[in-house]
Design a protein around this nucleic acid. Sequence first.
DNA 1: TCAATATGCCTCGCAAAGTGATGGCCGTCA
DNA 2: TGACGGCCATCACTTTGCGAGGCATATTGA
Lengths: 108, 108
Amino acid sequence: MDRELLKGSTPLLLLSLLCEGPMYGYQIIETVRQRTGGTYTLKEGALYPALHKLEATEFIASYWETQENGRERRYYAIQPAGLAFLKAKKKEWNQFVDMVQAFVGPKA
Amino acid sequence: MDRELLKGSTPLLLLSLLCEGPMYGYQIIETVRQRTGGTYTLKEGALYPALHKLEATEFIASYWETQENGRERRYYAIQPAGLAFLKAKKKEWNQFVDMVQAFVGPKA
DNA sequence: TCAATATGCCTCGCAAAGTGATGGCCGTCA
DNA sequence: TGACGGCCATCACTTTGCGAGGCATATTGA
């Protein structure tokens, strides 16, 4: 998968995922890998900065949770502002796809 | 339109356009603007470097043509290697869209 | 027992691509 | 003659992802 295409779609992916419930970093990476059948492996160097940025803008919030074995995980949960942002992003995404599709031609 | 989403889609757009026949830079910009109803304005700073790069890899070729008024235009035409590359890019594009769609949810 | 693997967080330097600004050249038209 | 539009192009800056690296602890297995 061309890395350049991915650029800009990460926030959309993350917010969409977090819509299903809070998740922690490692879990997000594994989930994406599994759902795409390994086609797309979200890299840590892309994930964590993106997550932190979304938190800085208060689109998501984080909290630490201790597991039974004593280890900690940092969960991220979508916030109201994030939901609104996601909605706008989705719209933009659809416009973008339609636009490119118009030049490239239908899927066929 | 979010600038970041566009990244990586430019070569795809250009090759697709040039499939319809040779075009020159300014014409490409105007064509994109018109077809998208102004939604997307390809910037010169993005177009020319992209064009030059596609030429360097021999996916497209260029030639100068003199108009009746004496002024020159630089036309770009797709090459066989470009056609093959376009085909691969299209496939990648479709995979990419399907992937994101799977997370974001159907267009609705 | 001890090494390898998996879980889990993070940061840093680099490369690639787009943006906005700027510059230059030349025709046309008021 | 001066403004505008056509037409090419480059440059510094920003953003984003990548690859590599670092740190720490639990589990597993030879």
